[in-house]
Simulated scan of single mutants.
Amino acid sequence: MKLIAYNDKFKEQIETYQVKNLVFTGLPQNAIKISQENINYHPVLLVNELNEICTFFILDYGDDKFKYTNNINSLLLRSFSTNERFLRKGYALAALRSLPRYIQTNYPNIQEITLGVNKRNVAAQKLYEKAGFKKEPKTYTGKKGPQLIFSKAIL
């Protein structure tokens, strides 16, 4: 398994990527469209040994991160999802655990990953905690309700 930046070689797989529950995340297809117009959006894929997309997310350099942190050397993790075919096989956790090294390699000035997770999304909260993210004391109210803020230092 490895994390790689999205490229058009994966376009067909992205078009068939399925998300079981869209209550708390969006479709990768939409995030990629945004990334084509927004230079701060960086789509990232976790692919397996067969080069199949298992997990997708965006690393966002933009100002939205300041809703979650004051750290200018941070990235906002957003649109995190696992392809329905690969649910409950450890891919999401593997992606999150691989993320610090990926960021050190590709974004050497970044010191922190931050994200918001809906207060009702207990499964995601447990996943982020298992991957070493720390819940921050403050919250943010987003479009879909209160967001708990999680962060992880990049060392």
Rank of each mutant, 00 (worst) to 15 (best):
K143L: 08
K67P: 00
A131C: 13
T105M: 06
L96K: 13
L155D: 15
Y68S: 03
D8G: 04
L27M: 08
Q36I: 05
A92S: 08
I72N: 12
E112P: 09
Q36S: 04
T82M: 05
E49H: 08
Y61S: 07
Y61K: 04
L115D: 08
D60P: 12
K119R: 14
E52R: 07
I32Q: 02
N118M: 06
I39P: 03
K152P: 13
N38E: 11
Y17M: 07
Y6K: 05
L46Q: 03
A95G: 09
N30S: 14
K143H: 05
K119P: 09
T69E: 09
E84N: 11
L50R: 14
S35Q: 01
I39E: 13
R101T: 10
F150D: 05
I113H: 13
T55R: 00
P108I: 10
T141S: 09
E136C: 03
G26L: 09
L77H: 05
I4R: 05
T105Y: 04
F86N: 12
S151A: 03
K67I: 01
N38Y: 04
Q111D: 08
L27G: 00
K33D: 01
L96F: 15
L115I: 08
I53L: 04
C54N: 07
S79V: 06
L22I: 11
L75H: 15
P146K: 12
K2T: 03
P137R: 02
L96P: 15
R78P: 03
E112R: 08
Q147E: 15
A31M: 03
E15Y: 07
I34F: 01
Y102G: 00
N106V: 11
Q29K: 09
R97I: 09
T139Y: 10
P108T: 06
N70I: 12
I103T: 10
H42S: 01
L155H: 12
G116N: 06
I4Y: 01
Q104R: 14
G132D: 15
Y128W: 07
H42Q: 10
N118G: 05
S81Q: 01
K9S: 10
P28M: 08
V19P: 11
I53M: 05
